[in-house]
Design a protein around this nucleic acid. Structure first.
Lengths: 127, 127
DNA sequence: CGTTATGGATAACAAATGGTGAACGCCCTG
DNA sequence: CAGGGCGTTCACCATTTGTTATCCATAACG
């Protein structure tokens, strides 16, 4: 994580059934490990720290990778997907990272059925 | 948004039940997301920044799209309508963007019933 | 009233954006 | 040195958004 000269805020975050432990680089859902890699964890952490706020890709990027995000860099997207996949594996039906088209992503732990009983499988993007 | 070399004024605006967060490109009505797209949001923002002032189409256009608005370009109108629709969806009865015939638009958060109990459905244009 | 100007409403089409799956290269470990 | 885990990058495709044209309603005006 890129915070030049800064310490990691180390208190655990709890959102819904998800617990995030910065010092341990661990994310737990109802006590079960999500199994995120370091990068994946960082992306989730950055988002979760600003619950319910829309973060631009560039902001997420600079906080995790440091520096300026190159034009058309898809790193953030790819990692968001990886995180989503692993979270979905442990917490089926829940949604945590919401897409804001043309802007970025927003963290909000959303229980199943909230947001409508979608018969469709695909993702829905917020705005 | 076109502000060559300029920074986005980033403090939230609040008008009536409407909150506008430039940084997040988010508009909220009583906490509920309006769901505007980036362009739609920009149009609303430009208007809201000059609450109660009538802005000419050309001004709105140049601030959002940049450059000079071409003769008979209806972009502004189309987006005003889109914004109105989405706002109406979340805040029934309220009016935010008022038409000034032959001139342009004016932002003013107006609660229901203010402005008369119109039985008619259509729009009313100010002057 | 009849005509013209102006804005509202839709829809068709084009472009931008993000989801996905997979290939690669690196590094570590057995 | 083979295998596995991880981060990075690419390419393809579905969806969402932006742009433009057209038709319709209404205001302005003689």
């Amino acid at each position: 994580m890129h915070q030049p000269g800064g310490h990691e805020n180390s208190f655990a975050l709890v959102h819904g059934n998800l617990e995030i432990r910065p010092e341990e680089i661990q994310a737990l859902v109802d006590g079960r490990r999500v199994g995120l890699t370091v990068r994946e964890f960082q992306v989730l952490l950055v988002l979760a720290r600003r619950e319910d706020h829309v973060l631009r890709r560039g902001d997420i990027y600079s906080q995790v990778w440091g520096g300026q995000m190159k034009h058309r860099d898809r790193s953030v997207d790819v990692f968001v997907r990886k995180v989503r996949t692993k979270l979905a594996h442990v917490a089926p039906g829940w949604a945590y990272i919401h897409t804001h088209f043309g802007v970025g992503y927003r963290f909000a732990a959303t229980p199943p059925s909230a947001g409508g009983s979608n018969i469709a499988i695909g993702n829905v993007s917020d705005r």
